[in-house]
Computed example of a mutant assay.
Amino acid sequence: MNPTPPAASDARPASARLRADVALYATADGHVLRAGDDYHHVALAGAELDDLLTALVRDRPPATPVARAALDALVGAGLADPRPPRIAVAGTGVLATALRAALRRMGVEPGPGGAAVVALDDAALPVDLPAGTRACWRAGHRVLLSPPGVPAVEVAARHHAATVHRASDRRVAPRDATSGVRSAAPPLAGPGLELAAVQVAAELLRPAPAPDEAVVVDLVALSVSRHPVLPVPPAPR
């Protein structure tokens, strides 16, 4: 016979980590984990169970190894969400602002102390960017995100080398600075900016991103592509 589930007017503390329709509560002879209409008796000692409950409510790591293993098991079974990583977004432009907003919507509060990512509205990447720091930036009508295994400045150099010939072709050079018409819209705006911010945020939250795969968001076509990229070889001596 199934234990009696908690009443609809449950006054117990809520956990943002537990998935929808999952609850952990006391019964007359122990504790029960309820997932939808499935019920599982929990065999944890009092102190370890209290540690698990506190971790779920306060969204912090459990203090005891047994409670940590229990929480890992809940995450592995899809009954609880993993703790979102901390991400520090460096940048003051439109892309950085949109990226922070996208991360917050995904449950991540950007701030110091986490993995760093640089977000720029142009391709002027700092040459002294620390190794391993990922970066996203706008280059023409695209936003690029560097992979974790290739320095961002080298990704930018590869992209520039692959595209610079288009604008330098004399056949497409403007006759003068006043003839014709151009768009009044900023390059980073509307659906393109939203897609870029959401895609970059999701990529930063991937548990095992490809170490040498750059992500490219086309702001005009509203499409996403992935491109293997190798480090720029050293100059010959």
Rank of each mutant, 00 (worst) to 15 (best):
A67V: 08
L230P: 05
E48V: 09
P62N: 04
R19Y: 02
T92P: 01
L205G: 12
Y25R: 05
A173F: 12
A70R: 07
L144F: 09
R105Y: 03
S179Y: 03
P174D: 03
A124R: 15
H165M: 12
R34W: 04
S146V: 03
D50K: 09
R170L: 15
V57R: 13
G192S: 05
P191I: 02
E109W: 04
A47T: 14
A202K: 14
H141R: 15
A14T: 15
T178R: 14
L79N: 00
L56Y: 01
V216S: 08
L44Y: 02
D29T: 12
R60F: 10
A101Y: 00
A47W: 05
E194Y: 00
G91M: 03
L52V: 08
L79Y: 04
R171V: 14
V117E: 06
P84R: 04
V118L: 15
L74R: 06
N2R: 15
L79Q: 01
P234V: 08
A20R: 13
A35Y: 06
G107M: 05
V220I: 15
P233V: 02
D50M: 10
D81M: 15
S9K: 12
R182Y: 11
A167V: 15
G91T: 00
L129Y: 10
R105G: 11
C136Q: 07
T133P: 05
A139Y: 10
D169S: 09
